[in-house]
Design a protein around this nucleic acid. Structure first.
Length: 427
DNA sequence: TCTGGGGTCCTAGGACCC
DNA sequence: TCTGGGGTCCTAGGACCC
């Protein structure tokens, strides 16, 4: 029995965060720009002009300040509400081309094109590219192939070679072997730095050579995961859906502090604020949590300071989506791990064991009035949504927030905040 | 002075049971 | 005195991804 041939397209937004900034300020076109991580720490998105200057992904900003200045690179603090809104617009547009695009990340989606006539696939890809650009202003590249792993390779090659104009169809292509030959190990989806090292040690240096290896040999030395990747490279689709279904398994809220935290009170504020943010995210997805993890740490970059990191795992008797309840456990967890005398740089709240709120198992001795508390939470979320984040918050989150992260040059939230709409002048 | 944040999956090893 | 071995469940940590 032969399986029907699968075909996937990977649609990948070019330099996504940078492209979002450009949509609302066309003067940025052709200029080097970068977007920074939270706390204005590292580079997380670069325009082609910035890449050409040798600015690397993940580069700490303080190391390249002179370079940025010298070339008059426009620098943006991240504006995630803008980016996620733009992302939704792109994904919505893709629904024109496939019943249910699999949203893989903020800037990537897979489309199942198995039903599309093989002779029109490349044209179809171009159509996707043009429509997304026209409807959202975001430039995308499209890679088409028999498996998701090959589609990834196709899209990377499409970005690199100008001849393709951003669309490359590898299905049934005589160039596939050549494409694999030109793909370094580190550029294969699922192969990270550790595997690269081990594979190179075995004398394998590109995707094509990896494909030639026998299954048994791979299995003996590596894992089933790598075997799966190799099958994909050979054109046999064996990855399931990449979307987060049926619901997310964990929610993290993690931030570095703008200035180090050195007192229990300040840390308690930060942990409370982070817990409240994580709880908001969770309620937005109609989930409740059974296990909560509190983590605090000093900087890992200051070897001259005494290091400390610890985490506390807290189990709730009954799954909850109530911020007050979560705050109680978070604070209790914190007092278990907090040690005085350190300069803390980061805190993190992880919510694990998430369950849909509508199917919570009530505890035998649980007397809390769940309906009442969920109405309170809904009211709180609504106020913060309609009147701006932080309109109403818990006192334990604090008011001074000296630990709050730095954000010096964020663009306006053009699409999600009434106060920050774009203004046109017509003279 | 300044070094991000949010996820998933797999595996090894310990605890415990029969 | 003999010091087995299989199964399951849980967790921490590794590896990878964007």
């Amino acid at each position: 029995m032969t399986m029907p041939q699968t075909v996937f397209a990977l649609v990948d937004c070019n330099n996504f965060f940078v492209s979002c900034e450009r949509v609302f300020d066309p003067a940025l076109e052709g200029r080097p720009i970068v977007v920074l991580s939270n706390n204005d720490g590292c580079i997380i998105s670069r325009s082609n002009e910035a890449k050409a200057l040798g600015i690397r992904m993940g580069e700490p900003v303080f190391k390249i300040r002179d370079l940025l200045k010298q070339h008059r690179v426009r620098v943006f603090s991240p504006n995630f509400s803008l980016y996620s809104d733009m992302s939704e617009r792109v994904m919505k547009t893709l629904e024109q081309f496939s019943i249910r695009p699999e949203v893989y990340s903020v800037d990537e989606a897979f489309l199942d094109l198995s039903e599309i006539d093989a002779c029109v696939l490349t044209t179809y890809g171009r159509d996707i590219q043009e429509t997304v650009h026209q409807w959202t202003g975001i430039p995308v590249s499209v890679g088409i192939a028999e498996t998701k792993t090959l589609a990834k390779i196709a899209v990377e090659l499409a970005k690199k070679s100008p001849k393709t104009h951003g669309v490359l169809n590898l299905t049934g292509s005589p160039y596939r072997a050549l494409a694999l030959q030109r793909t370094a190990l580190k550029d294969i989806w699922g192969v990270g730095p550790r595997l690269v090292k081990r594979l190179e040690h075995e004398g394998i240096h590109n995707a094509e050579e990896l494909c030639q290896k026998e299954d048994g040999w791979l299995l003996k030395r590596f894992s089933v995961m790598l075997v799966r990747t190799v099958y994909e490279l050979r054109g046999i689709s064996c990855l399931g859906s990449v979307t987060r279904d049926p619901h997310q398994k964990s929610i993290i809220y993690s931030r570095s502090f703008g200035t180090p935290v050195e007192t229990f009170e300040a840390m308690r504020e930060a942990v409370s604020a982070y817990t409240a943010r994580a709880a908001e995210k969770m309620r937005h997805q109609r989930l409740s949590v059974r296990t909560l993890n509190v983590y605090i740490a000093t900087s890992k970059f200051h070897p001259w300071e005494p290091p400390y990191a610890n985490a506390a795992m807290m189990h709730l008797p009954v799954a909850s989506d109530n911020t007050s309840e979560l705050l109680f456990y978070a604070q209790r967890g914190l007092s278990r791990i907090y040690q005085a005398g350190y300069r803390y740089k980061k805190a993190r709240i992880t919510l694990l064991d998430l369950v849909p709120t509508h199917q919570i198992q009530q505890g035998l001795f649980d007397t809390a009035d769940r309906t009442k508390s969920s109405r309170l939470m809904a009211a709180l979320d609504r106020m913060n949504r309609d009147f701006g984040a932080g309109t109403v918050h818990y006192a334990s989150e604090g008011f001074e927030k000296a630990w709050r992260m730095r954000q010096e040059s964020r663009s306006r939230r053009y699409t999600t905040s009434w106060d920050e709409l774009i203004i046109l002048q017509c003279d």
